[in-house]
């Protein structure tokens, strides 16, 4: 048994050595920035454009963790992220009230749209009110795919059902995918169902989907993105200087101009509309 103990120790030593060797000095010198964000900012490709610019300008290394807004804020409220770029205003306000974040700034908006099969079995095309539209989808029993993942889009969708006075939970026409926006759109397309999507992700996926925008333009469908620095007083391990630099970066004039132009060449219209500095009602 003695021999085994020794070899076990050797292995453990090797293992620890490997772990230490594998983690470059990076961690200690505060060069890493953990950005927790939504799938929509990644799936549209916006962050692939912005983050390298930020890295080049500041020397920080951005670790983008693209999850739903709900999960992003959960990471923030545990101090496991440095900066958040999210779109779930009601949950964000709660996040700020809990003292988990500081310095919440308006970044940009686009809008949510109700998309569905071109045949439009529930006949919602062109309806002006989004709550009325989901009410009609429910009344007709047409399939509706929900993200079901506590993302910003899911929060907005729940809000619509509430406004419509319908509780879709557990009803036959209502299915939850638990997936990101892109995958949920694919599921909806495959099952010929309706879903709520942000315009950016829809536009970037449009070519393969065969789904139409059926309802848009309702004021309740506004999709607003904020950047939030995670509170360093509550979580001392947060890389505040990097987080603040990132927040300042996304609301800076140059970057706002880039956001406003992003996607125009590819989709004919911008995917996001820059809002920094505008009055923030939400």
């Amino acid at each position: 048994m003695k021999m085994l103990n020794r070899s076990f120790l050797v292995i453990m030593a090797l293992f620890v050595a490997a772990i230490l060797a594998g983690s470059p000095a990076s961690a200690a010198d505060g060069k890493n920035l953990i950005l927790a964000t939504t799938t929509s900012t990644q799936d549209t490709g916006l962050l692939d454009l912005l983050n390298p610019m930020f890295e080049k300008k500041t020397g920080y290394f951005v670790k983008t963790i693209a999850v739903g807004s709900g999960q992003a804020m959960a990471m923030g409220s545990k101090g496991e992220a440095d900066v958040l770029l999210v779109h779930s205003p009601a949950a964000e306000k709660k996040f700020m009230e809990e003292g988990s974040g500081v310095n919440r700034k308006l970044v940009m908006h686009n809008d949510f749209i109700i998309v569905g099969p071109p045949s439009d079995p529930a006949g919602v095309k062109g309806m002006k009110s989004a709550p009325e539209a989901v009410k009609q989808i429910a009344a007709k029993g047409a399939l509706f795919l929900s993200r079901g993942d506590n993302s910003g889009t899911h929060a907005k969708e729940k809000d619509l059902w509430k406004k419509a006075g319908v509780n879709p939970e557990g009803q036959k026409f209502y299915q939850q995918t638990g997936l990101g926006m892109g995958q949920t759109l694919n599921v909806a397309a495959e099952k010929k169902g309706y879903t709520l999507a942000d315009r950016g992700t829809y536009l970037s996926l449009k070519k393969n989907l065969g789904m139409d925008i059926l309802v848009d333009g309702d004021k309740t469908l506004l999709n607003i993105y904020h950047v939030i620095v995670v509170n360093p007083e509550k979580f001392p391990k947060v890389n505040t200087s990097a987080a603040r630099a990132y927040a300042d970066f996304v609301v800076s004039k140059d970057v706002q101009a880039i956001i406003g132009k992003f996607g125009v060449d590819k989709y004919g219209s911008p995917l996001f509309f820059p809002d920094a500095g505008k009055p923030d009602n939400d």
């Binding site: 772990i19 983690s23 961690a27 200690a28 963790i65 545990k78 101090g79 496991e80």
Partner: peptide
Amino acid sequence: LWRNGPLGFFELLYTPT
């Protein structure tokens, strides 16, 4: 591996290691 987890001081989360 969380920063505030038991092995957080290694700062290994979101690394190839």
